Structure formats: C-alpha cells, structure tokens
Amino acid sequence: MAADGPGRLLCVGGPPGSGKTTVGALVARAAGVALVDLDSVTTPLLEAVAAADGLPVDLDSPRFAALREARYACLAAVVADCVRSGVDVVAVAPFTREAADGSWSAWGAAAGATSVTTCWLHVPADLLATRVRARGLARDLAKAGAPVPAATVAPASVDLLVDAAGAGPDDLVARVLAGWSARP
C-alpha cells in the first residue's frame, strides 16, 4: 500500500524448502503490499546463463555461488524502487548470510525502508529434505541425494523466529502479520 514516505520492509528468510515463497506471497496478499522474491527476480537470468553454458542451475556450484552478491544486489534494487515509491514490501530470499551475521536489517535500511522486520522460518532438516525433493525444481536437481543443510540463526539477529513445521499457512501468515504489525 502506498504511503506518504518510504515504505516498510519485511524480510522473510530461511533454508530451501522452509516455505519462504509461500508464506511471503500469502503475507503480501493479506497485507496488500508488494512481494519481491529473489528467485523471481534472478532465476530466469541464471537459467539463461546456465543454458548458454550447457550447465544445470546449481546455486551451490562455484560458478553460481559467485553470483550471490549480484543476485542480492538485484533484489535490493527492486526493493529500493518499491520502498522509495512508498510501497511496503515483503522480500523473500534465503538471507542465510545476512541472518547469521545480523546484517539483514542494515541491508533493508540501505534499500531505504523506514523500518525493517526480519522473519526466519525454521523447519527441521528432515522435513526440509522431504519438501525439497517433493517440489522437484530444476535448481534442486543438482543437489539430488545431498543432505539439505539445516541453517540456523541466532535468535538475536531475527525479529520474528517462526516455527514453520506442522503449522498451516493461515496460522503462519497470522503469526507473521502480527509480528510485523507489532514492530515500530
């Protein structure tokens, strides 16, 4: 929803299979705000580069891991465009490095958001592995059979730590919206 000044930012992060995209989209819809997803912003380009080189899109391979900073710069640019125009944004990305070092609030502030709320979706490693196998995305195929890392975050670096295992989408959305609304 457009505001008089810059918009607010909710960053939804978590490991692959934690439900970031689903939860982020549902929260954005319920709040009537923009959704900016790292995968939507950058995956088509990564797939084109991979196809040109005859490679699978494996974000953990050295070639694609080297593009991490550029991917997050694309996400930040789109988020910044939205918040500068007064639109509140739900940004979805793993944010694993940013959550681990506590820099994702600074990342959001640098994009110009009036406030940044960080939300981490926690799911046990065995459930993550099941979800990743079930979704069958091309970017996951290169990791077939590999264990899904259980990313952990120090609670001090997260505004909303949400246990996303076993909770229904409506419950998750309600918890995230309540936490985001409660933030200044």
Rank of each mutant, 00 (worst) to 15 (best):
L10F: 12
L10E: 05
C11Q: 12
G13F: 07
G14A: 11
P15Y: 09
G17P: 06
S18C: 09
T21R: 04
L26G: 15
R29C: 09
G32C: 11
A34N: 10
L35C: 09
L35A: 12
V36N: 11
V36H: 01
L38E: 14
D39F: 00
D39A: 09
D39Y: 01
S40H: 15
S40W: 12
V41C: 10
L46C: 11
A48W: 00
V49F: 09
A52R: 14
L55G: 02
L59H: 11
S61H: 07
R63D: 03
R63H: 07
E69F: 08
R71M: 12
R71T: 09
A73N: 04
A73V: 04
A76P: 04
A76M: 01
A77H: 02
V79P: 05
A80D: 03
A80C: 02
V87H: 03
D88F: 01
V89P: 09
V92I: 08
E98S: 07
A99T: 06
A100N: 06
D101A: 12
D101T: 13
D101L: 14
G102F: 11
G102Y: 14
W104F: 11
S105P: 07
W107E: 03
G108S: 06
G108M: 04
A110D: 12
S115F: 00
V116N: 08
T117L: 04
T118M: 02
W120N: 05
H122T: 15
A129K: 11
T130L: 06
T130P: 06
R131W: 08
R131V: 08
R135T: 00
A138I: 03
D140E: 12
D140T: 12
L141T: 13
L141Y: 04
A142T: 03
V148R: 05
T152L: 09
T152E: 15
V153M: 14
P155G: 14
V158I: 14
L160K: 06
L160Y: 07
A164M: 04
A167W: 06
G168Q: 07
D170G: 05
L172M: 08
V173M: 02
R175P: 07
R175A: 15
V176R: 05
V176M: 03
V176W: 04
L177G: 07
G179F: 03
P184L: 14
